[in-house]
Amino acid sequence: MKLPFKINKEKTSLLHRGIWYAVGLLLFFAPFAYYVRGVNWLLGTAQNAGVHSPCFRMPIQNLLEGKGLQILTVGGLSTILLVLSALLVGPFFCGRLCATGALPEYIGRLVPDAWKINLHQEINPVPIRYGFLVGFALTPFFAGSIACAFCNFTLIERLTTGGLWGDVGYLGSTTIITAIIWLLPLGIFAQGGRGFCSFLCPVGAVQSAIHSVGRRLGFTYKLKLAKAACVSCSACVKACPMGALRQEHGELHYQVHTCVTCRHCVALCPTKALTFGTGAHGWGESAPEQEPAVQVQLIKEKA
């Protein structure tokens, strides 16, 4: 189904999201890291201004290792903010602020689809994603922490500082392997460009797990479907960089455990069947909604 207005909407959504990711880059990543600088100023601490300080991976491991959580630190406050935001608005960090996830997605848009592998079609990311999270949490007890060794967050810092000052810093074997996986097979050559987010990001997995619970509460924000308004055009399915949506037997299926709530699908939905807001999520429910149905009629008439 050809939608003449899709291109403009897509570009607008990409630009809108891109601005958010640029803000994320300025907030969390060296050499800017204004969020860390701000928290340092508030707490009177002097933690390093880079993505290392608000890192969510290390607090997870500290908790699991019984070291507890130091709340009045950049890491402690960030962990609390991340958990709260995931509960109230879904994986907001992933969908709006994580420049690391966005970079391969945006570069990948320049690569022809014919060169890409549709990983989400080949393999269900959910057990892989949570399997990695559990493995990640268990490694300190067996082989030592892999929190930093396979971190893709620092890679974008390296690219930024390398771009600005020509020095990407020390690269260990595991960092090099992570960079290759993040940017190439799970990046620009993966459909949607977010293979690393879908399969290997423990930060995203924790947020998704929290969001899967939070979305059941009425007052939280979530991706909502008005079934009556859906015309099965698959625009959302094609737009989703995480492969969280699929069309099967004329019905739209949603995988909350991989959705990063980037709302790209919402922006591209021609009938506003998909929205992001509070209330019941509508997936698996059959309550018709009158207002969007009228819009569907209008679109059909136009066609």
Partner: peptide, 9 residues
């Protein structure tokens, strides 16, 4: 995947 992650460790 759990096993693979441990192997990676």
């Amino acid at each position: 995947m759990v096993s693979l992650t441990l192997s990676v460790g």
